[in-house]
């Protein structure tokens, strides 16, 4: 059974031991690094199949196939106040893009609660899990296609 990528696990561990203030500062640093999906991947209006269900911040996720068979993840967050979604998108991109698909598929969506803390509101928790779910789903889809008989 594959484990999530080491870089992802490292981030989760960092958050697991952070107090509330440290967590907020770390998340804002991540959110500051957010870059929207580049135009060669997608342009507005973004297609509905890339829209994260249940996410109040109107997040979108894309997976770009890299030559080595891994994926580069791209995101858009339409709510200008969707800072948590942006921070989460940067964490996922920085730790999962270019990683083995088996490991990406093994990322547990409820890691959201380690990163954002147990006090994250229900709506936000569901939305953030939805983003992670879409990322891992892309990885599983590519794996399934790879393993399909030609």
């Amino acid at each position: 059974m594959a484990q999530p990528p080491k870089a992802f696990q490292q981030v989760i561990d960092d958050f697991a031991f952070a107090d509330r203030q440290e967590r907020i500062e770390m998340l804002i640093e991540y959110a500051d690094r957010f870059r929207e999906v580049p135009p060669h991947i997608a342009a507005r209006p973004f297609p509905e199949e890339h829209h994260v269900q249940k996410c109040e911040s109107d997040a979108y996720v894309w997976a770009e196939d890299l030559p080595d068979g891994t994926l580069k993840f791209h995101f858009a967050v339409e709510n200008p106040q969707g800072l948590s979604a942006k921070a989460w998108a940067v964490i996922l991109d920085e730790t999962l893009s270019g990683q083995p698909l088996e490991e990406v598929a093994a990322v547990p969506c409820d890691s959201v609660f380690t990163v954002f803390g147990k006090e994250v509101s229900m709506g936000k928790g569901m939305g953030l899990m939805g983003i992670a779910d879409m990322v891992t789903t892309f990885a599983r889809q590519r794996l399934a296609a790879r393993n399909r008989p030609a």
Binding site: I24, L27, I28, Q81, G82, L83, A87
Partner: peptide, 21 residues
């Protein structure tokens, strides 16, 4: 609702009151 918003930028002089904390 989002605890990240205030620290990321707020009205000058504004304080934060957090619903949970």
């Amino acid at each position: 609702e989002d605890p990240l918003l205030y620290p990321s930028g707020h009205i000058p002089g504004a304080v934060q009151v957090d619903w949970a904390a």
